[in-house]
Amino acid sequence: MNAMPLAPAPEPDVLRVADIAPEALTRLLARFDMMVEHVPDGAKIPGSFWGEPEAGVIASTVYVRPDTPVHSFLHEACHLIVLPPERRALVHTDATDSDIEEDATCALQIVLADALPGVGRERLMADMDAWGYSFRLGSTRAWFEQDAEDARAFLQARGLPHA
């Protein structure tokens, strides 16, 4: 019997940057002295750690395409937000070097989802689960509600939104 190649799995149905008003992304990042740069469909996304369509980061700029998932935009933006300005300025593609920064990034992206019209934390957590984020309690919601105290303390200590 000849083996048949498996078809690639379809990408989950998650909110994309094209679903959000561009000025909402700009306003959100401006609160943290950062910028969003929109690249055209099919173009390479500068600073993307995971590759297209995932968002990219270079210094204080988050790069996205219309097909970039909103959770990816928020995640990469939050990686930069949790960093002090002197570290942020040095970032190119890979923004973190610690577990607590990664946890704080995940918690902050959930909190900041409420600042984007049409997103909100409920939808963002569902999109994170659909995309394959992995938390030891089995879901983004369970982690955020029951196991993210250290991440919230990290954010609070830096004067960042945490609830």
Rank of each mutant, 00 (worst) to 15 (best):
M34E: 05
P46R: 00
R31W: 11
D13K: 07
A9S: 06
L6W: 02
D13M: 07
L15S: 12
T26I: 15
P12V: 11
L15K: 07
R27E: 14
D33N: 15
M34A: 07
V36M: 10
S48C: 09
P8S: 04
V39D: 01
M4F: 10
L29C: 12
R31K: 15
I45Q: 00
L15T: 14
E23G: 06
A7G: 06
P12G: 06
A18S: 12
A21W: 00
F49C: 08
E11G: 06
I45S: 01
K44W: 03
D33L: 13
P10L: 01
S48M: 03
E23Y: 08
G42I: 10
R27P: 14
R31V: 13
L28K: 07
A18V: 12
A30M: 11
A21N: 04
T26F: 13
F49D: 00
S48F: 04
V17S: 02
E23R: 08
K44I: 09
L25P: 09
A43I: 10
P10S: 01
E37F: 13
A30E: 11
A43P: 07
E23M: 10
D33K: 11
L25W: 05
T26V: 15
P5I: 12
P12Q: 03
F32G: 09
P10K: 01
F49A: 07
A9T: 08
I20V: 15
R27C: 14
V17K: 00
S48H: 04
L25K: 05
R31Q: 14
I45E: 00
V14L: 01
E11A: 08
M4T: 15
D13V: 14
A30Q: 13
M35Q: 14
R16K: 09
A24F: 06
V36T: 15
P5W: 02
G42A: 08
A24I: 11
P40Y: 03
E37Y: 14
R31T: 15
M4R: 06
A21E: 07
I20Y: 03
A7C: 09
M4Y: 10
P8F: 03
A43N: 05
P10Q: 01
T26D: 14
L25F: 13
A21I: 01
M4H: 08
V14W: 01
V36Q: 07
A21Y: 00
L15G: 11
L28F: 07
V17F: 05
A18Q: 09
A43E: 13
V36W: 02
P8A: 09
M35A: 14
E23C: 11
A21L: 07
I45M: 04
L15A: 15
P10G: 01
W50Y: 12
I20H: 03
M4P: 04
P8Q: 06
P46Q: 00
D33T: 15
A21F: 03
A7S: 12
A24R: 05
F49R: 03
A7N: 07
H38C: 15
L28H: 05
T26Q: 13
V17Y: 02
L15H: 05
A30V: 09
P8E: 04
I20S: 03
L6D: 03
R31Y: 11
G47K: 00
A30S: 13
A30T: 11
P40S: 08
F32C: 10
P46I: 04
L6C: 01
I45L: 06
V17C: 12
A21P: 04
